[in-house]
Amino acid sequence: MGETPRLVASDIDGTLLRDDRTLSPHTAAVLARIAAAGTPVVLVTGRPIRWLQLVYDQLAEPLPAICANGAVVYDPVADEVLRADPLAPELLAEVARRLRAAVPGVSFAVEIVDSRQMRHEADYPLRWDADTDAIRAVESPEELLSAPAVKLLARAGEQDPDVFVRVVAGALQGLAEATHSSYTGLVEISAAGVTKAAGLAWYCARLGIDERDVLAFGDMPNDLPMLTWAGRAVAVANAHPAVLEIADEVTAANSEDGVAAYLEKVFGVG
């Protein structure tokens, strides 16, 4: 990578946001100055589109986003999905069949309509926006798997997430991507080849930007493909051990504005 990156890509939760899910005014100001000076800043997240407004409310201007672990590329200004890579219903059915055979007590939810809506089985434990109109329990497994989904979510009680994701990936054997972005025992499943790296690569190609010129920040295993792909990979100090192991550099923790501190150093803004 040259001295100055041509694009900045950052994960949101655990990276840009503090532990209380707020964005510090300082970090927001640094991102705004970099974007205003002409360097694209892109959010690359496991979050669905419907969760982005909570972040946009804390930014000076909404930033483009690679959502659902790379399955959705979103333009917030036009409220337009530029690209979507969902799991087809037939693939969803095969993934669910394999996981039900391999994981006792597994339950599922799906992100549909480009992640603007979520459907879940009755016994799937909801932890966040359970009361919104976009979330609904289905009446049968067949209904859950009847529409293309940009992400399939799997839970099976309390699980070590690193162990659980290996079990899921082993059961799928390349049929789909399996990763995790939290410590709650949730595994996130995307179509084969769909990762944060793939979504970001598509967006960068659209802008004519090479991966060598991309500076990327992250903290969890779902960030690994992006961090491996980017020209410069920076982990926050609170990152998962797997992320710390492959990062080119480590900045301060999310609670200490680590991304902003690193960007100030690279771009000379403050």
Rank of each mutant, 00 (worst) to 15 (best):
M1C: 14
P5A: 15
P5G: 13
P5M: 14
V8L: 11
S10V: 04
G14A: 04
G14V: 05
T15P: 02
L17D: 00
D20F: 10
L23Q: 00
S24D: 01
P25N: 03
P25E: 01
A28S: 11
V30H: 03
V30S: 01
L31A: 06
R33Y: 05
A35Q: 13
A37W: 02
P40I: 10
P40A: 12
V41T: 02
L43V: 02
P48Q: 03
W51I: 00
Q53V: 11
E61R: 15
P62S: 14
A65D: 00
A65C: 08
A68D: 06
G70L: 06
D75I: 06
A78D: 12
D79M: 08
E80N: 08
E80D: 14
E80V: 12
L82M: 13
D85K: 11
D85R: 13
L87K: 01
P89F: 04
P89S: 04
L91R: 09
E94A: 13
A101M: 10
A101Y: 07
A102V: 03
A109C: 13
I112L: 09
V113L: 08
V113G: 00
M118W: 11
A122V: 08
A122F: 01
R127L: 15
D133S: 14
A137Y: 03
E142T: 15
S146G: 07
A149L: 08
V150C: 07
Q159D: 04
V163G: 05
V163D: 15
F164D: 06
V165M: 07
V165Q: 09
V168C: 10
A169C: 12
A169N: 10
L172F: 09
Q173C: 14
G174N: 12
G174T: 12
A176I: 06
T179P: 04
H180K: 06
S181R: 02
E188K: 09
I189H: 03
G193S: 10
T195W: 07
K196T: 05
A197C: 09
L200V: 13
A201E: 14
W202K: 05
Y203W: 15
L207R: 15
G208W: 12
E211P: 15
A216G: 08
G218T: 04
M220L: 05
M226S: 04
A233R: 08
A233F: 10
A233T: 09
V236N: 02
N238S: 04
A242S: 14
A242C: 04
V243F: 02
L244R: 10
E245M: 01
E245C: 01
I246S: 02
I246T: 10
A247F: 07
E249S: 12
V250W: 00
N254S: 02
N254L: 04
S255A: 10
S255D: 14
E256D: 13
G258H: 03
G258D: 06
A261T: 11
Y262W: 12
L263I: 06
V266G: 05
V266R: 11
